[in-house]
Amino acid sequence: MQAITRRLAKISVIDISGDIDLASSPQLRAALLKELKDSKPSRLVLNLTGVRYIDSSGIASLIEGLKAARDAKVRYVLFGLNQTVREVMQLSKLVKVFEIVDNEEQAVAG
């Protein structure tokens, strides 16, 4: 898994790619929490376009990022979910917890 951060003014966009599983989810969690702490963005956008697979530990890492963002009053937006990621999100019954949009344009707008 790779997580590369871009900064657009006060918006941080993290491009995530590869598989998010037991081996890599701690890395994702650390990247999310570090970005929130270090950059203090007004919005944290996660680009999941390159994510091929996610398991429950990956979902949990996304949730931990969401909770930290809420605590810091940072908007937390996801986009680029493929079929595999959407299925796992739906199975978790947590899909409505996240703000999910179709593309980056929508994620950084408003």
Binding site: S25, S56, S57, A60, L91, S92
Partner: peptide, 18 residues
């Protein structure tokens, strides 16, 4: 629950559901 999510916590739910 959302307030108690930790890695692995959803795993058995996924297994049972599928």
């Amino acid at each position: 629950a959302l307030d108690d999510v930790k890695p692995g916590g959803l795993g058995l739910h996924f297994i049972r559901e599928t």
